[in-house]
Every structure is written in structure tokens, then in C-alpha cells.
């Protein structure tokens, strides 16, 4: 390190592995016979998990209700499509805005809570919303979800096709844009403050930091991104059901993020790959018991990799670099 500025520049610089990661996602599109609908699902789950990472990984807020925001985005896109607003990109913006507004409120509500109380309140809010959607059959179609959702062409040019080609590229492009925003955010001074608050609240208070306000902000941003993920799901499968905001989804996204590793941004995407590929594969082998294997996988990963897949690979990678005699000071946080 020459100067402190150079050090922070280094933290924010794109690593080769990052570029490879996104190129691979683009490349998968061209692989013959590839399961594009599954890949779209993975991208959407990955984006969803990344939004949770902002809260859990970077700010240290454990929420059990994150699907609420996903669902709000999904239903926003659904209603728009049902009532004639078929243009998908503007619908994403609206979904993000509404989810962000609800996120801001939720953040205000829970920001003074911690630990078990926080867990219970976020779970409670999720359950209330789910139950409301399920019961308001007139409004939401209840169990069946919204009928007659129509989604127009992307940019007025690309129709959502049967093979899921448009869906995949569209999801990938949106997820990448969201990733760019999230990445800039965590590399900003605000991102550093999130880490500070995750590590030590009394210290942040003694730095005069507005602890609490940052929770609302983090919730709003994470909710907006979750909302975009939800809207993407609605748009790519052209329907929406209460599944979108079920507690099961809140639990699954947590599993995905922890599998992949927190505070890495990529953890959610990698976790989604593993989780959904396995689910797909296991569901073919035995459609009933696949959660058993997911559970087992979670136990194994947490027992042997502790911090999840991406951080563990990161440590391995730095060790290899060290053996080759390169700079040993590379903080493992920046490995990927």
C-alpha cells in the first residue's frame, strides 16, 4: 500500500474473478440445451439473496421476513400487467419504489430491535402480509394468485419467448445493474458505516453516527432490490402467486445466502446456483424428500466451511496466492 487512498481504491477495484463470474453467466446462454428457465430462477434468487446480504452480511440484521418485499414487488408487477401497464421496465421501477417505501417503514419499526425480538417481528410482519394476501381472494386471487397478467416486450423489441431466452437475458441484465448499485454502495463510505454498525454499535454512537437511521436506509435499499427480484419473477413467468411472499421463501433465501456466504455480494448468487441445481436434481430423483438433502447440505456446509462457500473459497485462494509469494496482506474480505 502506498497511500490510504490507494488502499481503498484497491478494495473497490474489479477483481478478475468477478469479471469471469459475469462472463460465465452470459456464456451460459449460448450453451446448447441449457435449462434457461432454471438459470433465470437462479439469477432471480441470487438477486434476492444479494438484497438480503445488504442487511444480514453488511449491517448484521437478521430478518426472517425478507420475502415480504419480494412479494410486494411480485404483486406490483402482477397488478400492473393485469391492468394494462404491460411495459416491463417501468414496472420494475414502480415495484422497487413501492417495496422501498414499505422497507423504509419496516426499518423504522424494527430499528431499535435486535436479536430474537427482531427475528420475531420480521417473521410476524411477513406472516401477516402472507395471510392478508391469501385471505383477500377478491383482491389478490388468494391461493390461485393473479390471473391474466400480461407482460409486454422488453424495450418494445424482445418478446418473452417459450424457451426463456428473453427472460434469461432480461433477468441477467437487471440483476447485473442491481449488482452494480449494491457493489458501489458497499464500497462507499456508507458501506463502511454499515460494517461499523455491524461490528460495534456503542462505538458507532461514540463516533456520533446516526445509528438507527442507517437501518431504515438499509432496509429501504434491500427492499427495493428484493422488490425488483420479485417483479422479475412475475414478469418472466407471467404470473404471481402467494408463494412469492411465503415464509418458506424467507427461510429459503436465508439458506441460500448462508450457503453461499455473507458479506460478499456474490454469496447469494453462488448459493442460489447450488441450492436450485440441487433442488432441481433431487426433485427429479425423489420429488418428496429433497428438503432432507438440502438440510443435510446446510449442516455440512456450515460445519465444514463455516462461513459459506464463497468466503471459504476466498480463503483457499489467498492461501494459494501466499504460497506463490504474492502480497499476504490482501484482506480476505476483498477476495471476491
Amino acid at each position: 500500500m502506498n497511500t490510504p487512498t490507494a488502499y481503498f481504491e484497491g478494495l473497490a477495484r474489479w477483481k478478475p474473478l468477478e469479471i469471469v463470474f459475469w462472463l460465465v453467466l452470459v456464456g451460459l446462454f449460448f450453451v446448447p440445451g441449457v435449462n434457461l428457465p432454471l438459470l433465470s430462477q437462479i439469477i432471480i434468487w441470487g438477486l434476492f439473496a444479494m438484497s438480503l446480504d445488504l442487511l444480514l452480511g453488511y449491517r448484521g440484521i437478521l430478518t426472517m421476513g425478507h420475502a415480504a418485499f419480494f412479494g410486494i414487488g411480485a404483486y406490483t408487477a402482477g397488478y400492473l400487467g393485469k391492468f394494462g401497464w404491460t411495459e416491463p421496465i417501468s414496472a420494475l421501477f414502480l415495484a422497487a419504489a413501492i417495496a422501498a417505501a414499505v422497507g423504509l417503514l419496516a426499518g423504522r419499526l424494527v430499528r431499535s430491535l435486535g436479536g430474537i425480538a427482531l427475528l420475531m417481528v420480521t417473521l410476524g410482519l411477513n406472516l401477516i402480509l402472507y395471510d392478508f394476501v391469501l385471505r383477500s381472494t377478491e383482491l389478490t386471487g388468494g391461493d390461485d394468485g393473479l390471473q391474466g397478467v400480461v407482460i409486454g416486450q422488453v424495450l418494445g423489441m424482445f418478446k418473452f419467448d417459450l424457451y426463456g431466452k428473453t427472460a434469461y437475458l432480461y433477468s441477467l441484465a437487471v440483476a447485473f445493474l442491481m449488482f452494480l448499485i449494491a457493489r458501489a454502495l458497499v464500497k462507499s463510505s456508507f458501506g463502511l458505516a454499515l460494517l461499523g454498525a455491524r461490528e460495534n454499535i456503542p462505538r458507532m454512537i461514540m463516533l456520533g453516527a446516526p445509528v438507527g437511521k442507517d437501518v431504515s436506509a438499509a432496509f429501504a435499499i434491500a427492499a427495493a432490490m428484493a422488490g425488483v427480484a420479485g417483479a422479475l419473477l412475475t414478469q418472466t413467468i407471467q404470473s404471481v402467486s402467494p408463494d412469492a411472499l411465503s415464509f418458506q421463501r424467507s427461510a429459503d433465501v436465508l439458506v441460500i445466502l448462508i450457503l453461499g456466504g455473507t458479506a460478499r455480494l456474490y454469496g447469494g448468487f453462488v448459493g442460489a446456483f447450488v441450492f436450485l441445481f440441487l433442488r432441481d436434481w433431487l426433485a427429479q430423483l425423489n420429488p418428496v424428500y429433497w428438503y432432507f438433502w438440502i438440510g443435510l447440505l446446510l449442516v455440512v456446509v456450515v460445519a465444514f466451511f463455516r462461513k459459506g462457500i464463497v468466503p471459504s473459497l476466498g480463503v483457499l485462494f489467498t492461501r494459494m496466492q501466499k504460497k506463490r509469494g504474492t502480497d499476504e496482506r490482501t484482506p480476505n474480505r476483498a477476495a471476491l
Binding site: 490510504p4 487512498t5 490507494a6 488502499y7 481503498f8 481504491e9 478494495l11 473497490a12 448499485i181 458501489a184 454502495l185 464500497k187 462507499s188 463510505s189 456508507f190 458501506g191 463502511l192 458505516a193 460494517l195 461499523g196 461490528e199 458507532m204 463516533l207 456520533g208 453516527a209 436506509a217 435499499i221 484482506p331
Partner: peptide, 26 residues
């Protein structure tokens, strides 16, 4: 965090420059 990051954060907070933004710490 390391001492550089810790003290940088202290100064950013002192100056009120840690509000949500997309600008790099650098």
C-alpha cells in the same frame, strides 16, 4: 476492520460524510 478503515470511518462520521451514496471511499 483494520485501523485505517476504523479511523477513516471515524473521520467520515465526524464530517457527516457516511450517508447513503454510491461514491467510493477512495
Amino acid at each position: 476492520l483494520n485501523p485505517l478503515e476504523s479511523v477513516a470511518l471515524a473521520l467520515l462520521e465526524r464530517e457527516g460524510r457516511a450517508k447513503p451514496s454510491l461514491a467510493k471511499v477512495a
